[in-house]
């Protein structure tokens, strides 16, 4: 059987590479390599050798030009040494090859700003949505209930019943789109797979703090039409064991944290399809 191989990119301000790699391993990946962006740009590491790309949390370039903007620009224009191609060519090929990308928090901001989400009609290089400053104007670290759309094509959220409880840790998590048509398409195609909700996962909410940032339609995470590329502001890699839950000392919880399912689903998909 194929070895399921995950790649976690770090460098220039990415912060969650250790726990993302840990979650990949727990989720069933045979290998989870943390590669510095300079190793991709020098050609030492190639996306082609992996199945699952993790763009994880952090503050790329300090979010200095707006979250993940500078890295979006870098990935778009930086050349891979000695390969005669741009990094973005590798990424496009990765998607075309049917492989998987998960962007969490800063990684979600990066995907959206590169145009890789929602990528309506398969155009992965046209930005139609964004993530900007929370309505509160403040960074927030708090746990949120996320209602899951069972009809979503996202392969990561398969098997989630009702919703998941995960932490958000961001200052720029307010999801906005360029026009009403984009939003309609996202909703009609069930791409908005996770929405901030009440604790019973009954309905999406615009109320703070349940909705920590004021995202339009309470959107916390979206996927592309293939379901293989997904981004979300909450951190699934931050809840893979019960001791990470804020109330684990008072609630009876299973050993495994609710965020692990994203990585298990990814590993399962890779093993079934490659």
């Amino acid at each position: 059987m194929t070895k399921a191989k995950a790649l976690v990119i770090t460098g220039n301000g990415t912060n969650c590479e250790m726990e993302a790699a840990h979650a990949c391993r727990l989720g069933g990946f045979d290998e989870a390599r943390i590669a510095h962006i300079s190793e991709l740009m020098s050609g030492e590491v190639s996306l082609d050798d992996y199945h699952f790309l993790n763009l994880t949390g952090g503050f790329l370039d300090g979010d200095d030009l707006g979250s993940a903007k500078a890295q979006a620009n870098r990935l778009r224009y930086a050349a891979v040494q000695g390969k005669g191609e741009l990094l973005v060519d590798q990424i496009s090929r990765f998607i075309a090859d049917g492989k998987l990308i998960l962007g969490v928090c800063n990684g979600f901001q990066l995907l959206v700003k590169m145009g890789m989400l929602p990528a309506l009609g398969g155009d992965y290089l046209k930005q139609t949505a964004t993530l900007t400053y929370n309505a509160s104007g403040r960074f927030q670290d708090r746990w949120c209930y996320l209602k899951c759309d069972a009809a979503s094509p996202s392969l990561y959220t398969r098997g989630i019943e009702g919703g998941v409880y995960l932490p958000v840790r961001h200052g720029e998590g307010k999801f906005l789109v360029d026009d009403a048509k984009t939003l309609e398409a996202i909703e009609a195609k069930h791409l908005s797979c996770l929405k901030y909700s009440d604790k019973h996962y009954a309905a999406p909410t615009m109320e703070f703090p349940e909705n920590p940032n004021g995202s339009v339609n309470a959107i916390a995470g979206i996927c592309d039409e293939t379901g293989r590329v997904m981004g979300l502001m909450p951190h699934p890699e931050a809840f893979v064991h019960r001791t990470q839950h804020p109330r684990w000392t008072r609630e009876e919880l299973p050993e495994e944290g609710e965020g692990l399912i994203f990585f298990k689903n990814a590993a399962k998909y890779v093993k079934e399809n490659f």
Binding site: N15, R138, D141, P167, V240, Q244
Partner: peptide, 11 residues
């Protein structure tokens, strides 16, 4: 709450 107290996953 303005301080990320959970990054690195060991909280």
């Amino acid at each position: 709450r303005r301080y990320d107290h959970e990054v690195q996953g060991g909280s």
